[in-house]
Write a protein that binds this DNA or RNA. Structure first.
Length: 445
RNA sequence: GCCCCCAUCGUCUAGCGGCCUAGGACACCGGCCUUUCACGCCGGCAGCACGGGUUCGAAUCCCGUUGGGGGUGCCA
Protein backbone atom coordinates (compact mmCIF):
# COMPACT_ATOMS: atom_id res chain seq x y z
CA UNK A 1 0.00 0.00 0.00
CA UNK A 2 1.22 3.45 -0.89
CA UNK A 3 1.92 6.03 1.75
CA UNK A 4 1.64 8.87 -0.72
CA UNK A 5 -0.28 11.82 0.56
CA UNK A 6 0.00 10.83 4.15
CA UNK A 7 2.19 12.21 6.84
CA UNK A 8 3.84 10.13 9.52
CA UNK A 9 0.61 9.76 11.46
CA UNK A 10 -1.12 8.35 8.45
CA UNK A 11 -3.22 11.47 8.01
CA UNK A 12 -3.99 12.53 4.46
CA UNK A 13 -2.25 15.72 3.41
CA UNK A 14 -5.01 18.18 2.63
CA UNK A 15 -4.66 21.76 1.46
CA UNK A 16 -7.16 24.36 0.52
CA UNK A 17 -7.29 27.38 -1.70
CA UNK A 18 -9.71 29.80 -0.13
CA UNK A 19 -10.39 32.85 -2.28
CA UNK A 20 -12.94 35.53 -1.63
CA UNK A 21 -15.02 36.02 -4.75
CA UNK A 22 -14.16 39.56 -5.74
CA UNK A 23 -15.05 39.25 -9.39
CA UNK A 24 -11.64 38.47 -10.74
CA UNK A 25 -8.73 36.29 -9.71
CA UNK A 26 -5.85 38.42 -8.47
CA UNK A 27 -2.39 37.42 -9.69
CA UNK A 28 -1.35 36.90 -6.09
CA UNK A 29 -4.29 34.61 -5.50
CA UNK A 30 -3.50 32.74 -8.69
CA UNK A 31 0.04 32.16 -7.45
CA UNK A 32 -1.30 31.05 -4.06
CA UNK A 33 -3.68 28.65 -5.76
CA UNK A 34 -0.84 27.34 -7.89
CA UNK A 35 1.49 26.75 -4.94
CA UNK A 36 -1.26 24.96 -3.03
CA UNK A 37 -1.95 22.84 -6.09
CA UNK A 38 1.74 22.11 -6.71
CA UNK A 39 2.28 20.94 -3.18
CA UNK A 40 -0.93 18.93 -3.00
CA UNK A 41 -0.06 17.16 -6.23
CA UNK A 42 3.56 16.76 -5.24
CA UNK A 43 2.52 15.04 -2.04
CA UNK A 44 -0.28 13.08 -3.62
CA UNK A 45 -2.61 14.87 -1.23
CA UNK A 46 -5.89 16.68 -1.73
CA UNK A 47 -6.74 20.24 -2.63
CA UNK A 48 -10.03 21.69 -1.49
CA UNK A 49 -11.50 24.78 -3.10
CA UNK A 50 -13.23 26.85 -0.48
CA UNK A 51 -15.14 29.95 -1.40
CA UNK A 52 -14.90 32.52 1.37
CA UNK A 53 -18.18 34.29 0.89
CA UNK A 54 -19.18 34.93 4.48
CA UNK A 55 -19.88 38.46 3.42
CA UNK A 56 -23.29 38.48 1.74
CA UNK A 57 -22.29 40.69 -1.16
CA UNK A 58 -19.58 38.25 -2.13
CA UNK A 59 -21.93 35.31 -2.44
CA UNK A 60 -23.03 35.96 -5.99
CA UNK A 61 -22.98 33.17 -8.57
CA UNK A 62 -21.22 35.23 -11.24
CA UNK A 63 -18.39 36.17 -8.92
CA UNK A 64 -17.91 32.55 -7.93
CA UNK A 65 -18.15 31.37 -11.51
CA UNK A 66 -15.24 33.65 -12.30
CA UNK A 67 -13.05 31.79 -9.82
CA UNK A 68 -13.86 28.41 -11.36
CA UNK A 69 -13.25 29.80 -14.79
CA UNK A 70 -9.89 31.31 -13.92
CA UNK A 71 -8.64 28.20 -12.16
CA UNK A 72 -9.78 26.00 -15.03
CA UNK A 73 -7.99 28.22 -17.46
CA UNK A 74 -4.79 27.94 -15.45
CA UNK A 75 -5.14 24.19 -15.31
CA UNK A 76 -5.58 24.04 -11.55
CA UNK A 77 -8.04 21.39 -10.48
CA UNK A 78 -9.37 20.57 -7.06
CA UNK A 79 -10.77 17.57 -5.23
CA UNK A 80 -14.44 17.16 -4.47
CA UNK A 81 -17.10 19.82 -4.61
CA UNK A 82 -16.15 23.39 -3.79
CA UNK A 83 -17.05 24.38 -0.25
CA UNK A 84 -19.11 27.53 0.10
CA UNK A 85 -18.88 29.25 3.45
CA UNK A 86 -22.19 30.94 2.86
CA UNK A 87 -23.78 27.48 3.14
CA UNK A 88 -22.15 26.58 6.43
CA UNK A 89 -23.53 29.25 8.71
CA UNK A 90 -24.89 26.73 11.20
CA UNK A 91 -21.44 25.32 11.81
CA UNK A 92 -20.03 28.74 12.57
CA UNK A 93 -22.95 29.62 14.79
CA UNK A 94 -22.44 26.48 16.84
CA UNK A 95 -18.82 27.38 17.29
CA UNK A 96 -19.65 30.91 18.36
CA UNK A 97 -22.21 29.59 20.84
CA UNK A 98 -19.68 27.14 22.20
CA UNK A 99 -17.16 29.92 22.75
CA UNK A 100 -19.82 32.10 24.35
CA UNK A 101 -20.75 29.29 26.74
CA UNK A 102 -17.16 28.52 27.62
CA UNK A 103 -16.50 32.18 28.22
CA UNK A 104 -13.90 32.39 25.51
CA UNK A 105 -16.05 34.91 23.66
CA UNK A 106 -18.33 37.70 24.81
CA UNK A 107 -21.10 39.86 23.54
CA UNK A 108 -19.80 43.33 22.79
CA UNK A 109 -22.16 46.17 21.85
CA UNK A 110 -23.68 44.50 18.84
CA UNK A 111 -21.08 41.91 17.91
CA UNK A 112 -19.47 38.87 19.49
CA UNK A 113 -15.76 39.10 20.12
CA UNK A 114 -13.22 36.47 20.95
CA UNK A 115 -11.47 37.00 24.25
CA UNK A 116 -7.76 36.97 23.48
CA UNK A 117 -5.59 36.01 26.47
CA UNK A 118 -3.94 39.04 28.09
CA UNK A 119 -0.65 37.27 28.50
CA UNK A 120 1.45 34.65 26.86
CA UNK A 121 2.34 34.21 23.23
CA UNK A 122 0.93 32.48 20.19
CA UNK A 123 3.47 31.07 17.81
CA UNK A 124 3.98 28.56 15.06
CA UNK A 125 6.71 27.14 12.90
CA UNK A 126 6.17 28.55 9.47
CA UNK A 127 7.64 26.44 6.68
CA UNK A 128 8.68 29.58 4.85
CA UNK A 129 9.38 32.10 7.59
CA UNK A 130 10.62 29.97 10.44
CA UNK A 131 9.36 30.41 13.97
CA UNK A 132 6.89 33.27 14.21
CA UNK A 133 5.71 34.60 17.55
CA UNK A 134 3.02 37.07 18.54
CA UNK A 135 2.55 38.43 22.04
CA UNK A 136 -1.08 37.90 22.94
CA UNK A 137 -1.26 41.34 24.52
CA UNK A 138 -0.82 42.78 21.05
CA UNK A 139 -3.67 40.80 19.56
CA UNK A 140 -6.96 42.60 20.01
CA UNK A 141 -10.29 41.01 20.85
CA UNK A 142 -11.59 40.46 17.36
CA UNK A 143 -15.11 40.06 16.04
CA UNK A 144 -16.23 36.54 15.26
CA UNK A 145 -19.92 37.26 14.73
CA UNK A 146 -21.22 40.47 13.25
CA UNK A 147 -24.24 42.27 14.68
CA UNK A 148 -26.28 40.98 11.74
CA UNK A 149 -25.56 37.47 12.98
CA UNK A 150 -23.14 36.49 10.23
CA UNK A 151 -19.81 34.85 10.97
CA UNK A 152 -16.57 36.59 10.15
CA UNK A 153 -13.60 35.32 8.24
CA UNK A 154 -11.74 34.36 11.42
CA UNK A 155 -14.23 31.92 12.86
CA UNK A 156 -15.22 30.51 9.47
CA UNK A 157 -11.59 29.95 8.69
CA UNK A 158 -10.83 28.19 11.96
CA UNK A 159 -13.96 26.07 11.92
CA UNK A 160 -13.59 25.02 8.30
CA UNK A 161 -9.94 24.14 8.54
CA UNK A 162 -10.85 21.95 11.47
CA UNK A 163 -13.94 20.46 9.91
CA UNK A 164 -12.31 19.81 6.55
CA UNK A 165 -9.19 18.35 8.09
CA UNK A 166 -6.86 20.85 6.49
CA UNK A 167 -3.27 19.92 7.33
CA UNK A 168 -1.37 22.62 5.43
CA UNK A 169 -2.25 26.26 5.08
CA UNK A 170 -0.44 27.92 2.20
CA UNK A 171 -1.38 31.57 1.73
CA UNK A 172 -0.03 35.05 1.21
CA UNK A 173 2.16 36.84 3.69
CA UNK A 174 -0.49 39.51 4.06
CA UNK A 175 -2.31 37.01 6.27
CA UNK A 176 0.42 36.33 8.82
CA UNK A 177 -1.20 38.62 11.31
CA UNK A 178 -4.46 36.69 11.27
CA UNK A 179 -2.68 33.44 11.93
CA UNK A 180 -2.41 33.88 15.72
CA UNK A 181 -6.13 34.61 15.81
CA UNK A 182 -7.01 31.48 13.91
CA UNK A 183 -4.68 29.39 16.04
CA UNK A 184 -6.19 30.83 19.21
CA UNK A 185 -9.70 30.03 17.95
CA UNK A 186 -8.76 26.52 16.92
CA UNK A 187 -7.37 25.80 20.34
CA UNK A 188 -10.30 27.43 22.11
CA UNK A 189 -12.54 25.14 20.09
CA UNK A 190 -10.78 22.20 21.69
CA UNK A 191 -8.27 21.19 19.05
CA UNK A 192 -4.78 20.60 20.38
CA UNK A 193 -2.90 20.45 17.11
CA UNK A 194 -1.82 23.33 14.92
CA UNK A 195 -1.73 23.08 11.15
CA UNK A 196 1.41 23.52 9.14
CA UNK A 197 1.56 27.05 7.84
CA UNK A 198 3.50 28.41 4.90
CA UNK A 199 3.18 32.13 4.24
CA UNK A 200 4.20 33.03 0.73
CA UNK A 201 6.15 36.16 -0.07
CA UNK A 202 4.03 38.88 -1.63
CA UNK A 203 4.09 39.63 -5.31
CA UNK A 204 4.95 43.29 -5.75
CA UNK A 205 5.11 45.76 -8.61
CA UNK A 206 8.17 47.60 -9.94
CA UNK A 207 7.82 50.06 -7.06
CA UNK A 208 8.06 47.15 -4.62
CA UNK A 209 4.52 47.73 -3.49
CA UNK A 210 1.84 45.10 -3.16
CA UNK A 211 0.09 44.71 -6.51
CA UNK A 212 -2.86 47.05 -6.48
CA UNK A 213 -5.92 47.10 -8.62
CA UNK A 214 -5.57 50.83 -9.28
CA UNK A 215 -2.01 50.89 -10.53
CA UNK A 216 -1.38 47.44 -11.89
CA UNK A 217 -2.97 44.83 -14.09
CA UNK A 218 -3.74 42.44 -11.28
CA UNK A 219 -6.50 40.33 -12.78
CA UNK A 220 -5.51 37.06 -14.34
CA UNK A 221 -8.07 37.67 -17.05
CA UNK A 222 -6.27 40.83 -18.17
CA UNK A 223 -3.39 38.64 -19.28
CA UNK A 224 -5.62 35.96 -20.66
CA UNK A 225 -7.36 38.54 -22.83
CA UNK A 226 -4.11 39.78 -24.29
CA UNK A 227 -3.07 36.34 -25.34
CA UNK A 228 -0.85 35.00 -22.64
CA UNK A 229 -1.00 31.22 -22.69
CA UNK A 230 -2.16 29.50 -19.49
CA UNK A 231 0.82 27.16 -19.47
CA UNK A 232 3.17 30.12 -19.76
CA UNK A 233 1.42 32.06 -17.02
CA UNK A 234 1.46 29.07 -14.74
CA UNK A 235 5.13 28.40 -15.45
CA UNK A 236 6.03 32.02 -14.80
CA UNK A 237 3.98 32.23 -11.61
CA UNK A 238 5.79 29.17 -10.28
CA UNK A 239 9.01 31.13 -10.58
CA UNK A 240 7.85 33.87 -8.21
CA UNK A 241 9.26 32.90 -4.85
CA UNK A 242 10.54 29.55 -5.97
CA UNK A 243 13.20 28.34 -8.37
CA UNK A 244 14.02 24.93 -9.80
CA UNK A 245 17.22 23.53 -8.29
CA UNK A 246 18.64 22.74 -11.73
CA UNK A 247 18.14 26.25 -13.14
CA UNK A 248 15.87 25.13 -15.95
CA UNK A 249 13.03 27.61 -15.70
CA UNK A 250 10.78 26.94 -18.66
CA UNK A 251 9.58 23.36 -18.40
CA UNK A 252 6.53 21.10 -18.25
CA UNK A 253 4.33 21.48 -15.20
CA UNK A 254 4.78 17.83 -14.28
CA UNK A 255 8.45 18.43 -13.67
CA UNK A 256 7.66 21.40 -11.48
CA UNK A 257 5.23 19.26 -9.50
CA UNK A 258 7.99 16.71 -9.01
CA UNK A 259 10.52 19.23 -7.75
CA UNK A 260 8.27 21.55 -5.78
CA UNK A 261 8.87 21.81 -2.03
CA UNK A 262 7.35 24.35 0.36
CA UNK A 263 10.65 24.54 2.21
CA UNK A 264 12.36 25.89 -0.91
CA UNK A 265 10.16 28.95 -1.07
CA UNK A 266 11.86 32.34 -0.62
CA UNK A 267 10.98 34.86 2.05
CA UNK A 268 11.54 38.06 0.12
CA UNK A 269 8.78 39.65 -1.93
CA UNK A 270 9.02 39.00 -5.66
CA UNK A 271 8.41 41.65 -8.31
CA UNK A 272 6.05 40.74 -11.11
CA UNK A 273 8.01 41.28 -14.31
CA UNK A 274 5.81 41.42 -17.38
CA UNK A 275 8.84 41.39 -19.63
CA UNK A 276 9.93 38.04 -18.33
CA UNK A 277 6.38 36.69 -18.40
CA UNK A 278 6.24 37.82 -22.01
CA UNK A 279 9.52 36.10 -22.84
CA UNK A 280 8.27 32.87 -21.29
CA UNK A 281 5.05 33.25 -23.22
CA UNK A 282 6.94 33.70 -26.48
CA UNK A 283 8.74 30.45 -25.81
CA UNK A 284 5.46 28.66 -25.27
CA UNK A 285 4.05 30.12 -28.47
CA UNK A 286 7.02 28.76 -30.38
CA UNK A 287 6.37 25.32 -28.92
CA UNK A 288 2.84 25.23 -30.36
CA UNK A 289 2.26 23.38 -33.59
CA UNK A 290 0.88 25.35 -36.51
CA UNK A 291 -2.71 24.20 -36.35
CA UNK A 292 -2.89 24.84 -32.63
CA UNK A 293 -1.39 28.30 -32.96
CA UNK A 294 -3.76 29.12 -35.80
CA UNK A 295 -6.73 28.18 -33.66
CA UNK A 296 -5.46 30.27 -30.78
CA UNK A 297 -4.87 33.31 -32.97
CA UNK A 298 -8.31 33.08 -34.57
CA UNK A 299 -10.20 35.17 -31.99
CA UNK A 300 -7.67 37.96 -32.29
CA UNK A 301 -7.89 37.95 -36.06
CA UNK A 302 -11.66 38.08 -35.93
CA UNK A 303 -11.38 41.25 -33.90
CA UNK A 304 -9.87 43.07 -36.85
CA UNK A 305 -11.98 44.84 -39.41
CA UNK A 306 -10.02 43.93 -42.47
CA UNK A 307 -12.95 43.82 -44.80
CA UNK A 308 -12.98 40.24 -45.95
CA UNK A 309 -12.90 37.50 -43.36
CA UNK A 310 -9.86 35.29 -43.08
CA UNK A 311 -10.33 31.64 -43.95
CA UNK A 312 -8.84 28.84 -41.89
CA UNK A 313 -6.55 27.98 -44.78
CA UNK A 314 -5.27 31.53 -44.98
CA UNK A 315 -4.74 31.65 -41.26
CA UNK A 316 -2.81 28.42 -41.25
CA UNK A 317 -0.64 29.64 -44.12
CA UNK A 318 0.23 32.76 -42.20
CA UNK A 319 1.15 31.04 -38.95
CA UNK A 320 4.77 30.27 -39.92
CA UNK A 321 5.24 33.99 -40.42
CA UNK A 322 4.03 35.00 -36.96
CA UNK A 323 5.23 32.08 -34.87
CA UNK A 324 8.71 33.42 -34.25
CA UNK A 325 7.57 37.00 -34.05
CA UNK A 326 4.53 37.21 -31.79
CA UNK A 327 5.30 37.22 -28.09
CA UNK A 328 1.65 37.31 -27.14
CA UNK A 329 -1.31 36.18 -29.22
CA UNK A 330 -2.74 39.67 -29.38
CA UNK A 331 0.24 40.84 -31.45
CA UNK A 332 -0.19 38.23 -34.13
CA UNK A 333 -2.71 39.93 -36.46
CA UNK A 334 -0.73 43.14 -36.80
CA UNK A 335 2.32 41.24 -37.95
CA UNK A 336 0.56 40.07 -41.09
CA UNK A 337 -2.22 42.64 -41.44
CA UNK A 338 -0.84 43.88 -44.78
CA UNK A 339 -1.83 40.57 -46.33
CA UNK A 340 -5.48 41.18 -45.57
CA UNK A 341 -5.86 44.95 -45.68
CA UNK A 342 -7.01 46.29 -49.01
CA UNK A 343 -4.90 49.39 -48.71
CA UNK A 344 -2.22 49.00 -46.05
CA UNK A 345 -1.06 52.39 -44.87
CA UNK A 346 2.48 53.53 -45.36
CA UNK A 347 4.54 54.01 -42.28
CA UNK A 348 5.83 57.53 -42.80
CA UNK A 349 9.42 56.89 -41.80
CA UNK A 350 9.53 53.74 -43.89
CA UNK A 351 8.13 55.55 -46.91
CA UNK A 352 10.71 58.33 -46.62
CA UNK A 353 13.63 56.04 -46.14
CA UNK A 354 12.97 53.24 -48.57
CA UNK A 355 11.00 55.04 -51.25
CA UNK A 356 10.95 58.84 -51.30
CA UNK A 357 14.64 59.42 -50.63
CA UNK A 358 15.97 56.19 -52.03
CA UNK A 359 17.61 56.45 -55.47
CA UNK A 360 17.26 52.73 -56.00
CA UNK A 361 13.53 52.75 -55.34
CA UNK A 362 12.22 53.49 -58.84
CA UNK A 363 14.65 51.25 -60.71
CA UNK A 364 14.00 48.34 -58.36
CA UNK A 365 10.24 48.69 -58.46
CA UNK A 366 10.26 49.00 -62.23
CA UNK A 367 12.44 45.94 -62.53
CA UNK A 368 10.26 44.02 -60.06
CA UNK A 369 7.06 44.88 -61.87
CA UNK A 370 8.50 43.53 -65.08
CA UNK A 371 10.04 40.42 -63.54
CA UNK A 372 7.13 39.55 -61.24
CA UNK A 373 4.77 39.60 -64.18
CA UNK A 374 6.19 36.37 -65.48
CA UNK A 375 8.14 34.70 -62.66
CA UNK A 376 6.89 31.46 -61.16
CA UNK A 377 4.88 32.58 -58.13
CA UNK A 378 6.69 30.82 -55.31
CA UNK A 379 8.82 32.24 -52.54
CA UNK A 380 11.90 30.46 -53.87
CA UNK A 381 11.48 31.71 -57.42
CA UNK A 382 10.72 35.23 -56.22
CA UNK A 383 13.78 35.11 -54.04
CA UNK A 384 16.04 33.94 -56.88
CA UNK A 385 14.62 36.42 -59.39
CA UNK A 386 14.89 39.37 -57.00
CA UNK A 387 18.46 38.41 -56.23
CA UNK A 388 19.24 38.67 -59.94
CA UNK A 389 17.62 42.10 -60.09
CA UNK A 390 19.66 43.19 -57.10
CA UNK A 391 22.89 42.06 -58.72
CA UNK A 392 21.98 43.77 -61.96
CA UNK A 393 21.58 47.00 -60.00
CA UNK A 394 24.69 46.40 -57.97
CA UNK A 395 22.80 46.10 -54.73
CA UNK A 396 22.77 43.61 -51.91
CA UNK A 397 19.53 41.76 -51.62
CA UNK A 398 18.76 43.47 -48.32
CA UNK A 399 18.94 46.91 -49.96
CA UNK A 400 17.22 45.84 -53.11
CA UNK A 401 14.18 44.34 -51.44
CA UNK A 402 13.56 47.34 -49.16
CA UNK A 403 11.60 49.45 -51.65
CA UNK A 404 9.60 46.41 -52.73
CA UNK A 405 8.81 45.57 -49.16
CA UNK A 406 7.63 49.06 -48.32
CA UNK A 407 5.66 49.37 -51.54
CA UNK A 408 3.81 46.15 -50.77
CA UNK A 409 3.61 46.05 -46.96
CA UNK A 410 3.95 49.70 -46.00
CA UNK A 411 6.88 49.16 -43.67
CA UNK A 412 10.57 48.37 -43.73
CA UNK A 413 10.15 45.70 -41.09
CA UNK A 414 8.06 42.60 -41.34
CA UNK A 415 7.96 38.89 -42.01
CA UNK A 416 10.11 37.39 -44.78
CA UNK A 417 9.27 39.20 -48.01
CA UNK A 418 9.07 36.44 -50.59
CA UNK A 419 6.96 34.19 -48.44
CA UNK A 420 4.67 37.16 -47.89
CA UNK A 421 4.48 37.90 -51.61
CA UNK A 422 3.66 34.31 -52.37
CA UNK A 423 0.70 34.53 -50.00
CA UNK A 424 -0.38 37.92 -51.27
CA UNK A 425 -0.57 36.74 -54.86
CA UNK A 426 0.77 38.05 -58.11
CA UNK A 427 -2.06 40.36 -59.02
CA UNK A 428 -2.22 42.21 -55.71
CA UNK A 429 1.55 42.45 -55.50
CA UNK A 430 1.75 44.01 -58.93
CA UNK A 431 -1.14 46.32 -58.12
CA UNK A 432 0.61 47.63 -55.02
CA UNK A 433 3.94 47.99 -56.76
CA UNK A 434 2.25 49.97 -59.47
CA UNK A 435 0.44 52.19 -57.01
CA UNK A 436 3.63 52.95 -55.12
CA UNK A 437 5.46 53.66 -58.35
CA UNK A 438 2.78 56.14 -59.34
CA UNK A 439 3.10 57.91 -56.00
CA UNK A 440 6.82 58.26 -56.51
CA UNK A 441 6.29 59.66 -59.99
CA UNK A 442 3.96 62.31 -58.54
CA UNK A 443 6.45 63.31 -55.89
CA UNK A 444 7.82 66.85 -56.30
CA UNK A 445 11.55 66.65 -56.84
C1' G B 1 1.98 55.24 16.49
C1' C B 2 1.74 49.88 17.49
C1' C B 3 2.56 44.72 15.73
C1' C B 4 4.99 41.37 12.09
C1' C B 5 8.42 40.57 8.31
C1' C B 6 12.24 41.05 4.43
C1' A B 7 17.40 42.16 2.21
C1' U B 8 22.40 37.95 -3.86
C1' C B 9 23.09 41.52 -10.80
C1' G B 10 17.71 46.56 -13.01
C1' U B 11 14.12 42.04 -12.32
C1' C B 12 13.20 36.55 -11.08
C1' U B 13 16.40 33.19 -8.92
C1' A B 14 20.86 29.19 -7.60
C1' G B 15 23.70 29.22 -3.24
C1' C B 16 22.04 26.50 2.97
C1' G B 17 30.50 27.58 6.35
C1' G B 18 35.35 25.81 2.32
C1' C B 19 33.38 23.46 -4.49
C1' C B 20 32.04 31.32 -5.22
C1' U B 21 37.73 35.10 -8.85
C1' A B 22 28.96 34.05 -6.76
C1' G B 23 25.89 30.14 -11.37
C1' G B 24 21.27 30.49 -14.54
C1' A B 25 17.05 33.29 -16.72
C1' C B 26 14.64 38.02 -18.39
C1' A B 27 16.00 42.84 -19.87
C1' C B 28 20.09 45.61 -22.00
C1' C B 29 24.69 46.00 -25.22
C1' G B 30 27.98 43.80 -28.96
C1' G B 31 28.91 39.90 -32.78
C1' C B 32 27.58 35.68 -35.96
C1' C B 33 23.62 33.74 -39.06
C1' U B 34 20.45 36.25 -42.59
C1' U B 35 15.85 38.53 -47.20
C1' U B 36 14.28 43.52 -43.20
C1' C B 37 12.52 42.02 -38.44
C1' A B 38 12.37 37.87 -35.56
C1' C B 39 14.28 33.00 -34.17
C1' G B 40 18.92 30.59 -33.15
C1' C B 41 24.08 30.74 -31.64
C1' C B 42 28.43 33.28 -29.35
C1' G B 43 30.16 37.10 -26.16
C1' G B 44 29.60 41.40 -22.74
C1' C B 45 27.68 44.68 -18.81
C1' A B 46 25.86 44.00 -13.94
C1' G B 47 24.96 41.70 -7.55
C1' C B 48 26.15 39.20 -1.93
C1' A B 49 22.95 46.99 1.36
C1' C B 50 26.46 48.75 5.39
C1' G B 51 29.16 48.01 10.11
C1' G B 52 30.60 44.83 13.82
C1' G B 53 31.32 40.00 15.62
C1' U B 54 31.79 34.10 15.61
C1' U B 55 35.21 30.91 12.80
C1' C B 56 41.37 28.52 10.36
C1' G B 57 37.58 30.10 6.74
C1' A B 58 31.23 33.71 5.78
C1' A B 59 26.93 35.50 0.43
C1' U B 60 25.99 31.62 3.90
C1' C B 61 25.75 31.92 11.50
C1' C B 62 24.91 36.16 15.45
C1' C B 63 24.19 41.49 16.68
C1' G B 64 23.44 46.40 15.12
C1' U B 65 22.55 50.19 11.29
C1' U B 66 20.24 51.53 6.92
C1' G B 67 16.70 50.61 3.39
C1' G B 68 12.10 48.23 1.98
C1' G B 69 7.42 45.81 2.73
C1' G B 70 2.91 43.80 5.11
C1' G B 71 -0.86 44.32 8.90
C1' U B 72 -3.46 47.37 12.14
C1' G B 73 -12.30 46.82 9.74
C1' C B 74 -18.68 44.20 12.48
C1' C B 75 -13.31 43.03 4.31
C1' A B 76 -11.15 38.60 3.45
Amino acid sequence: MSSAGRNLDGVTIRLRFAPAPTGYLHLGSARTALFNWLYARHMGGELILRIEDTNAELASPELIENIYDSLNWLGIDWDGEPVRQSERRDLYNEAVEQLLVSGRAYQDDGAVRFRVPETGVTSWDDVVRGHVTFENEHVEDFVIRRSDGSATFFIANAVDDLDLGITHVVRGEDLVNVTPKVILLRHALGEATTQTFAHLPLIVNEQRKKLSKRRDDVALEDYRARGYLPAAMRNYLALLGWGPPDDIEVRPIDEIVDMFELSDINKAAAAFDVKKLTAVNAEYIRMLDHADLAAKIRPYVDTKSWGASVSDEQLLAVVPLVRERAKILEEAPDIVDFLFLHEPEFDEASFEKALATNEAACPMIDAAVEAYGVVEWTADALHARTLELAQANNLKLGKAQAPIRVAVTGRTVGPPLFESLELLGRAETLRRLGAARAMLADLPS
